[in-house]
């Protein structure tokens, strides 16, 4: 008999009493919590993610490329990894930002270069969560997983209209269970650790800096 059959056999032999499904209790719990008003979501998100050590720039939708140029200059970014097949990638190509590097071939062909020769990467997001100041990153073939992990600076575009109050809202409203990518991600601030004497240090293994361009219809702050 295989280990699988033995384990499942032992579990079945215990004849655990069936217990009521928690689905309704989960729904009721989240319905009972106070909710942030729709017009406050962007502000709450920006405050929370700033508290997690991210840098937030609120910019009008049409002007984010200009802001990005400022950031590239200010941070001294020489190589910026971008997703060429995405709309924001195409906008970058058209803008003439210096040092653009497309993620256009499998990692296997350029792993060392990605690890050692890229200063920053820019990605889109599927949305964000106000309650915790969290990005919802949804990598796919055009915008691969490692973009938000390997380069020392991660720049993320968040459309203010896609911010939801809680993680529960995101999972239910966006129907996550109906179609997950190979690697969905929640990202809340730059990589960090407190493993040495509970002292907080940023840039443990992932990005040292997380920069959020929060796109709104309003004028730039």
């Amino acid at each position: 008999m295989s280990a699988r059959d033995k384990i499942l056999g032992k579990l079945r032999a215990a004849q655990a009493r069936p217990l009521p499904n928690p689905d309704d209790a989960v729904v009721a719990h989240y319905a009972s919590l106070p909710r942030t008003a729709q017009d406050q979501l962007a502000q709450e998100f920006a405050e929370k993610i700033t508290a997690w050590h991210a840098e937030v720039h609120t910019v009008p939708r049409g002007q984010w490329v200009d802001k990005l140029k400022d950031i590239v200059a200010e941070k001294g970014i020489r190589t910026l990894l971008y997703p060429p097949a995405k709309a924001h990638g195409k906008a970058l190509e058209a803008s003439g930002v210096a040092g653009l590097k497309p993620y256009d071939r499998p990692i296997d062909e350029w792993k060392q270069e990605l690890f050692e020769g890229v200063d920053a990467a820019i990605t889109g997001t599927r949305g964000a969560i106000a309650e915790t100041g969290t990005l919802i990153v949804w990598p796919d073939a055009d915008e691969p997983r490692l973009m938000s992990l390997v380069p020392p600076i991660h720049i993320a575009l968040v459309d203010a209209d896609t911010i939801v109050p809680t993680l529960y809202d995101a999972i239910t409203a966006q129907g996550w269970s109906q179609g997950l990518p190979t690697n969905a991600l929640l990202i809340t601030g730059p990589s960090k650790t407190a493993d040495i004497q509970q002292t907080l240090a940023y840039g443990a293994h992932g990005p040292k800096e997380l920069i959020v361009l929060l796109l709104t219809g309003e004028a730039s702050q």
Partner: peptide, 24 residues
């Protein structure tokens, strides 16, 4: 665990690299 409202990463993995994907 650590008194954090959330961790930096919540990594949701649903399978290995799919056709056409560039990493994983």
């Amino acid at each position: 665990a650590t008194g954090q409202a959330i961790t930096t990463y919540f990594n949701v993995i649903t399978g290995p690299r799919r056709n056409g994907e560039k990493d994983g």
